[in-house]
Design a protein around this nucleic acid. Structure first.
Lengths: 193, 193
DNA sequence: AAGCCAAATATAACACTGTTATGTTTTCGT
DNA sequence: ACGAAAACATAACAGTGTTATATTTGGCTT
């Protein structure tokens, strides 16, 4: 990994965090990194490669947000911490979050490596959620539970940024999400008895 | 409303349904509508106006999907029908759906009129969900319940289109959403007793 | 009906985008 | 030290949304 490559990715990440997709032009990245426009093509594969790198960055952050418990008994607490972390990531890396959730340049499609980063995060989430189910629950059931939890949290994050959410006065979004997750987890746990 | 305006909007809507944002260039719209490029600027306000019109189209579809019950007793059934309709809209007008949920050209911001279309849909959803709560529940509580239901369904719709969802084999997405909504509605109703 | 003014059109240009092409320079291994 | 590969710079191409500048059209008033 050359130094120029690091500088380019750093510049791209900075521009992305500040101005989102709109500020992320190849020429702007190159200039900000002190590199020729072509450098973005030699070190990455043009804009596609840049977006892939940012996509992976985004999902790596999500991956790091997922906390696995020491024992199955600590699963509920780990889920709560994970949701808190997830909300922080969605807030602090909003552009990355929008990118990995298709709220993007419409024509970008993640590469196989980028897709793998997403799969890793989802597998880890599945491992976490599995602790809420019966130890003998099949993998498919674990994945379905993980998907539902993820959808619940992501839906709230997504609507939060939507203009319509200005109609409602929510004093504490984080608490609202935590409450919703708590109710959901309660329902899941009640089901396995 | 001139005839040319209708033709332009129709062409834009068709292009949008087929090819999404990528196919929606001002020149393509004009050519497809049999109009000069400038016609898009005189009749609409350039691309911004086109996107606003499509945004309103999208939210009008969502609005039409919401079924209000005859009596409070029919609320559960009306919610179920509404969710079914909502899923159909999200599927049949995927591009519109992505547009109204910020999965778009990054720089587009809905105009006040477009925003109003979104507000109308959300108010109608609030009226529907209110039937699940105590008749004396304050508006803020109704809105919070409407937001949660919306987030749940939207989260599942959003994740369904995500690449990671290919990891899971879901035989019947519609049923999965309906089950999740049923559980949620059950929890809401249990709460008011 | 004639004239006039505003609306709609056509053509061209501008600034920007991602990308490709073409040399030129630098770097590095043999 | 030399040759090959990588990195560079400059310029060009085909797009994008938008603006500018005539030119034509349409509709209303006198």
């Amino acid at each position: 990994m050359s130094e120029a490559k690091d500088k380019i990715l750093g510049a791209a990440s900075d521009l992305f965090l500040e101005g989102g997709s709109a500020a992320l032009s190849v020429r702007a990245i190159a200039k900000s990194a002190g590199v020729s426009t072509m450098g973005v093509y030699t070190h990455f594969n043009g804009k596609e490669g840049i977006l892939d790198a940012l996509y992976i960055e985004g999902f790596d952050n999500v991956f790091a947000a997922i906390e696995l418990p020491e024992t199955r008994l600590g699963t509920r607490a780990a889920v709560k911490r994970t949701v808190k972390n997830y909300l922080s990531v969605a807030e602090n890396f909003e552009s990355h979050y929008r990118l990995i959730f298709g709220e993007r340049d419409a024509d970008y499609e993640p590469s196989p490596e980028a897709y793998e980063a997403g799969a890793r995060a989802f597998h880890r989430l599945t491992d976490l959620v599995a602790g809420l189910l019966s130890p003998r629950a099949p993998r498919a059931r674990q994945q379905r539970a993980a998907l539902q939890l993820w959808a619940l949290v992501h839906g709230l994050v997504s609507l939060r940024h939507h203009a319509v959410s200005e109609l409602i006065e929510i004093k504490d979004w984080r608490q609202l999400v935590l409450d919703a997750v708590d109710a959901h987890v309660g329902a899941v746990e009640r089901k396995i008895r």
